[in-house]
């Protein structure tokens, strides 16, 4: 069953992607200046053999085709910029960039999307349609990287039927 295979691969690759997160966390970049982060993502996709395009300067859009690739297109989106905050965590992967920190979890979003890409790519004979991977810049600052990606055609060729995004939620139960 596909779900069990996904779970198995997620477990198998978890340690690898925790390392990916450590790398991204240690090297945060501010909105619209995510050049090294973009290069890192492009490099990862290249290693996985997933074709991609660059959009809105630092954005990256990958495509994975499953069975019947024209039957449907689903987009998954992650943001990749950090905040102008000085990190106070005492961890081995603490931010190396003074005054810049992944304090909104965009390192985690990018990591999860790269991890999902590896899993989806490996199982592409077992699911239907096409998955569009959207790594976008500048979520934290107007005008918003999403608006630039849309202007640059991220929702065309192929046009997704729907789009999902994941965001970290720091508390176990919702408090407002």
């Amino acid at each position: 069953m596909l779900k069990e295979k996904i779970k198995q691969l997620a477990k198998q690759y978890a340690a690898e992607f925790i390392e990916v997160r450590h790398h991204l966390h240690a090297n945060p970049e501010l909105s619209y200046a995510e050049f090294k982060t973009s290069a890192f993502i492009q490099n990862k996709l290249m290693q996985l053999g997933i074709p991609f395009e660059v959009k809105a300067t630092t954005g990256v859009v990958g495509l994975i085709k499953g069975k019947n690739p024209n039957s449907k297109v689903i987009a998954l989106r992650a943001d990749m910029d950090a905040l102008p905050i000085q990190e106070e965590n005492d961890v081995p992967y603490k931010s190396k960039n003074d005054g810049v920190m992944h304090a909104c979890g965009h390192d985690v979003h990018t990591t999860c999307l790269l991890g999902a890409a590896k899993i989806l790519n490996e199982l592409k004979e077992e699911w239907e349609g096409t998955v569009k991977l959207i790594f976008q810049p500048g979520e934290e600052k107007n005008p918003g990287g999403a608006s630039l990606m849309i202007k640059d055609g991220v929702l065309e060729n192929p046009k997704p039927q729907s789009i999902f995004a994941l965001h970290v939620h720091p508390v176990c139960h919702w408090v407002s």
């Binding site: 997620a10 689903i74 990591t111 790269l114 999902a116 994941l166």
Partner: peptide
């Protein structure tokens, strides 16, 4: 997170 994203897409 990575597993759920993959599962959502498929």
């Amino acid at each position: 997170g990575m597993g759920v994203m993959a599962w959502m897409a498929t």
